[in-house]
Nucleic acid binder design. Structure first.
Lengths: 257, 257
DNA sequence: CGATCTGTTGATATCCTTCAATTTTGGTGG
DNA sequence: CCACCAAAATTGAAGGATATCAACAGATCG
């Protein structure tokens, strides 16, 4: 659990420096970890959401099924991601969450989370920022699905995962863990498995990537970015603006008084 | 402004009943309205976001341009929508916001918004819920872009707009204001203008819709929903669960003391 | 009342899908 | 450690949905 709360901390620290107190509060939020096997549902469409959770280890995704059995993966969930922070306001989930591999999560009761956020303005701001970043990723994904070719979508997925794993301190910068079958990649990118296969082969032939056992080495990041037309700007990694930093400091001061 | 804050109030009231005090606080947040012509940018990619705003009248959209000049519309903004509530944490917008027609907005300074939310837990919850609903719409859109045919996407867009306009008290339930050119619809749905045109004609021939001057009558909502494979469930219109309501009431009580 | 934007139409091209094998991989039990 | 099995990856051929290109008609607006 120490390790995994580090992934969350590492991500949040890209935004604003957290105090030891913030970090401790965050750690104390998490209840005993729960484990799931690969390809198991953590939550199902229609369920009443019960808790938020931090993904500690493994990988999961949000997804929706269509009536004809096809699937759209909406979002990949990586270690350090906080999910469903405000889902207590919702009666029934509009999508499912399933694991891609053996995965463990740390549930967080909604009440406790709200209380800690009220007491720790800086942590609260970091979590808000994390949500903003998530929205930006959703937008990027929508551009990919709406306007990019198959090659662009695959390149985009590889780049996005690399940055996210970097931010969470899970990657060396050139290599990506991608524990997805080609059918799952297809579900994430709105393509067919066959076509994903062909694009990946083309990438390998062109020495853009190399892969073995669900690890991809991004051999030519430059070119991949150009193909996917992505930069890491949208991740808002450049930290918090000065005015916001001042506002957070004021909030902290007023709490201590 | 009275009218338009009604659109926001109407939307929020689908979630939880707001007190007169909440409503007043909301109204007092809004500064003097600003007007924009059609096809003008309200904010541009790369800009430092300065204020949140409520769209009072007209229609706008978030969009991203691609290098080759193509565009993806990410999201339509309707009267009553609150935008960029937490954008103060971001250095540079990753997308632009532009009007589709003559539009007016009421800017809201971020500091004031945060203060009012801290004082009005019920209003705060309603705004959080509104953000959750927005995320659900984004997911629905991703499913449409990733997995639906052109016909499905067009049907989905018409249905979504109908529900949203209904919620904001802007529609009679069978008719939709759609002040978009076919090229703009194409940008929203990841299609080409030509193909949008053909789908719309097919819909008209099949007596699914009728249109005149940017108003669409949805003649066969049943069938449109089936084609778009959409229901209004994802809008979470069924209100707030009991536990959450209790938590909100507690927060209000502790504020008054 | 002309210029320009929008909508419409037809012909052709292409990217991606579909279908149907076949091979390879990875996991499991003997 | 090997044999076996199911799942995943790969390949080829053919079809379909949507894009592209180009031209024209109709609407809208100064």
């Amino acid at each position: 659990m120490g390790l995994a709360s580090n992934a969350l901390l590492s991500r949040l620290s890209h935004f604003i420096r957290l105090s030891e107190g913030d970090a401790r509060a965050l750690r104390e939020l998490m209840s005993a970890p729960e484990s799931f096997a690969g390809h198991e549902d953590i939550a199902r469409e229609g369920d009443r959401p019960h808790v938020a959770f931090v993904l500690l280890d493994g990988m999961a995704c949000r997804y929706r099924m269509l009536l004809d059995g096809r699937r759209q993966i909406l979002d990949l969930i990586l270690p350090g991601d906080l999910c469903d922070a405000r889902a207590d306001l919702v009666r029934a989930a509009d999508h499912s969450i399933g694991t891609m591999m053996a995965t463990s999560i740390a549930p967080i009761p909604h009440g406790k989370l709200a209380a800690v956020r009220a007491l720790h303005p800086r942590l609260d701001a970091a979590l808000v920022w994390s949500a903003i970043e998530h929205e930006a990723m959703q937008r990027e994904r929508m551009v990919a699905l709406g306007r990019r070719t198959a090659r662009g979508r695959v390149a985009y997925l590889l780049c996005e995962l690399m940055w996210r794993q970097n931010c969470a301190g899970l990657s060396d910068g050139r290599t990506v863990a991608l524990p997805l079958t080609q059918a799952e990649i297809a579900d994430a990118l709105g393509l067919t498995p066959v076509h994903v296969n062909r694009v990946l082969q083309e990438f390998r032939r062109g020495r853009l990537v190399a892969s073995s056992r669900h690890r991809f080495a991004l051999l030519d990041l430059e070119r991949l970015q150009r193909i996917g037309e992505v930069s890491s700007d949208y991740l808002h990694l450049d930290g918090v603006p000065a005015e916001a930093r001042r506002a957070i400091a004021r909030a902290e001061a007023s709490h201590k008084s």
